[in-house]
């Protein structure tokens, strides 16, 4: 997990298996960096699994920064399917 701030945008590069522990770490890291209003991008190319705690982190980020300001980028089809099935594709951009 790598988080950098660039031109007011928070870019989090994520990879691997996002279980409860990893999601908690992400949430803690975000708390330290996140300030609304701010664009947030999760780079998702390397993510192979997401648990419900990760989805909760996404909802919480979308609520803080606003739907149009939060993007999941480079999602693989299995993760895209999870987002669609969870009915969360309206909450943030997922591409």
């Amino acid at each position: 997990m790598k988080i950098i701030e660039c031109d007011g945008k928070l870019v989090c590069t994520l990879d691997g298996h996002f279980d409860t522990l990893q999601s908690q770490k992400l949430e803690d890291e975000l708390k330290a960096h996140l300030k609304a209003p701010q664009s947030v991008v999760f780079e998702m190319q390397g993510v192979t699994y997401v648990c419900s705690a990760f989805l909760r982190v996404c909802i919480s980020v979308a609520k803080i920064v606003g739907a149009g300001q939060f993007t999941l980028l480079g999602v693989t089809p299995p993760i895209k399917r999870v987002v669609k099935m969870a009915g969360m594709s309206e909450l943030f951009v997922c591409e």
Partner: peptide
């Protein structure tokens, strides 16, 4: 291929 499948998921849903 990955992007194409993602597009199909978008259309499907």
């Amino acid at each position: 291929f990955t992007d194409a499948v993602n597009r199909c998921i978008d259309l499907n849903f």
